[in-house]
């Protein structure tokens, strides 16, 4: 089984601030880490490999320092690493990101199974997985909460659909976006970290891709444009209601209706 896991480097804290003057995110001094949801995807890959054998590749698209999350994946037991990196890829939205990743995947090998996390803690869209699958023309499932059966040409999984669990069979090659709690991720091992510290990470740049048209990547390849970012409104609202029980009940009922709870 050839498994690919997509992982992203995100800021260590999501308590980011907006510079009130320039309106851009203050990223200075913020440490990076692996997107926590991707740990579950890595763990899923490791469990499947324990059953079926094969190899696991971790892939990330990002600046050079994003190689750090590949090292972390190595310390968890991942075999190979791919970093898709080029200045031309900067400023990408989901469409451009998923296209770049799909191009990088095609370049790096062939896989039976591609695993993604549920979402990231920065962009937070949960859209990259399904878009990568579309670019590759393979089926995909999201909200995967359990792997039930691994067959020769397909696998059976459970999906958490809020009010129900759906059990589905999906043919390889396919992409799964796994939920948090599918498995408990193992901690990186110090021994593995030492063993793999010189392991090569393959770097893929625009020049290596099948499609080298710059317009398809980065900001130029992104249909969405972030116009401005701003802090959310804080709820400083405070109202004191005095009165008879019946009056308070009436006001409370109207408020619950207004807030769409009743």
């Amino acid at each position: 089984m050839n498994i690919l896991v997509c992982i992203k480097q995100v800021p260590d804290s999501n308590k980011v601030e907006v510079d009130p003057v320039t309106g851009v995110l203050k990223r200075n001094g913020v440490e990076s880490k692996m997107n926590p949801y991707d740990l579950y995807a890595i763990e899923t890959a490791l469990r499947i490999k324990e059953k079926l054998g094969g190899s696991i590749t971790a892939l990330t698209m990002g600046p050079n320092q994003a190689a750090g999350v590949i090292r972390e994946a190595f310390a968890m037991g991942v075999d190979h690493g791919v970093l898709i990196s080029d200045r031309k890829f900067g400023g990408a939205d989901v469409l451009a990101t998923s296209y770049t990743i799909s191009q990088g995947i095609k370049k790096s090998g062939t896989y039976d199974l591609i695993l993604c996390g549920k979402q990231t803690t920065d962009g937070d869209t949960a859209q990259v997985g399904p878009e990568v699958a579309e670019w590759l023309g393979i089926p995909s499932l999201s909200n995967v909460s359990k792997v039930t059966e691994l067959k020769a040409g397909s696998m059976v999984v459970e999906m958490d659909m809020t009010h129900e669990i759906e059990i589905a069979e999906i043919e390889y090659p396919c992409l799964l976006a796994v939920d948090k709690d599918i498995f408990i991720p193992r901690l990186p091992s110090f021994v593995k970290k030492q063993e793999t510290k010189d392991r090569e990470i393959r770097v893929i740049t625009l020049a290596d891709l099948e499609d080298r048209e710059e317009k398809h990547y980065g900001l130029n390849g992104s249909p969405t444009q972030v116009q401005r970012i701003f802090p959310p409104e804080v709820n400083n609202h405070r109202e004191v209601w005095n009165g008879e029980g019946s009056e308070l009940t009436g006001r409370l009922l109207s408020k619950l209706k207004e807030l769409k709870f009743a």
Partner: peptide
Amino acid sequence: TPVGRQLAPRLAARLKTGLTAD
């Protein structure tokens, strides 16, 4: 919803257009 959150991105990539989440 669980359906919309996977159908929308798949369609957006097919149509090569932008999709804003949530």
